[in-house]
């Protein structure tokens, strides 16, 4: 499948999937179960709204979701209380699979969700979306329901303003355009067709989730794309335009940390895939600088991208879901 064909056949807009009744029928016919996972860390301001909207629209009105779960990294605000008060299943990441220990990072929550949640499909949606709408879940779920060959659906956000020429640039955020897209262009050209490779919203079949490793930090999305691509090919991906996403904008310095984590994950994959066979030992300290009373001083951040193994390697998981190695 070439990029043009993939863009034609595997790129969707959420409005294609307006017929919820039909979607519910198709889901029930395939006997699919679907879990929605919201990873959180101090999201008390937005979590209640997300849960209420998904529960009302995609559980009560149209039974597309079988469970809504919040996997929390140990919020110190009221995130867990608010989420529970609106009827979500709330879990503390550290209490899931306690025997494997606790690591801090969003990827850890996503990984542990595979063990905790029951769905054949898991939809991951970030908790910081200000303009939350049911499309953030059904827009990602629908391609998996209607296209059995698709295994992994990424969100992208593209709301065009008026453009007179009919042609306009589109793409991802700063880290995508400055780091990830150039890297993909060099080493995995087909993956450049994914408009926003770093978007935090995606829906994935369990058979894929349980088979791939999970970096626990910034690199989780990048590693997923590389791992799914190398194992199942571009045809396993779909992407859905969810229009606009309003969220907190991150300062450039924080994006630097994100880029540092992503590039570590990327290099590690490049090495294991023998694309860059020889790599020196990597330094995990990111140095940024600040000026204080006319002198410059460095601020050092230790960012090492740790990884969780494929869930299939965890015996407790295999037992719970009746899987055989």
């Amino acid at each position: 499948m070439n990029i043009d064909q993939w863009l034609q056949e595997n790129t969707f807009h959420h409005s294609h999937f307006w017929d919820f009744r039909h979607m519910v029928e198709a889901k029930e016919k395939q006997d699919l179960t679907v879990s929605l996972c919201i990873p959180t860390l101090n999201e008390e301001k937005t979590i209640g709204k997300e849960i209420v909207i998904f529960k009302s629209e995609l559980m009560s009105r149209y039974p597309l979701l079988d469970e809504i779960a919040v996997i929390d990294s140990g919020s110190t605000d009221q995130t867990r209380e608010v989420a529970a008060s609106f009827g979500a299943d709330v879990y503390l990441a550290s209490e899931i699979l306690p025997e494997v220990g606790e690591k801090k990072g969003k990827g850890e929550n996503l990984w542990k969700a595979i063990y905790q949640l029951k769905g054949d499909i898991i939809i991951y949606v970030d908790a910081d979306i200000k303009n939350i709408h049911p499309r953030f879940a059904y827009g990602l779920l629908a391609p998996l329901i209607y296209h059995p060959e698709i295994k992994y659906v990424k969100a992208f956000y593209d709301r065009p303003l008026a453009f007179s020429t009919g042609v306009r640039p589109t793409g991802g955020g700063r880290v995508t355009e400055i780091l990830v897209r150039p890297l993909f262009s060099l080493f995995f050209p087909e993956l450049t067709a994914i408009v926003q490779p770093l978007s935090g919203e995606y829906a994935v079949r369990r058979e894929v989730l349980e088979a791939i490793p999970f970096p626990i930090g910034y690199g989780v999305e990048t590693s997923h794309l590389i791992d799914v691509y190398t194992r199942w090919g571009l045809g396993a991906f779909g992407q859905t335009d969810l229009d606009q996403r309003v969220h907190r904008n991150q300062p450039t310095r924080d994006l630097g940390k994100m880029a540092f984590g992503i590039i570590q994950t990327f290099l590690s994959r490049a090495k294991s895939l023998n694309i860059i066979p020889e790599l020196p030992e990597l330094n995990h300290a990111l140095r940024q600088f600040q000026s204080k009373e006319g002198t410059f001083e460095q601020v050092e951040y230790h960012i090492a991208e740790e990884e969780r193994p494929p869930m299939m390697d965890v015996s407790a998981y295999r037992e719970k879901f009746g899987r055989h190695p």
Binding site: V52, K55, S56, R61
Partner: peptide
């Protein structure tokens, strides 16, 4: 949940 979801979506 239905009342609140309608309120949020209507109000936005």
């Amino acid at each position: 949940e239905m009342v609140l979801a309608n309120l949020v979506m209507m109000g936005e």
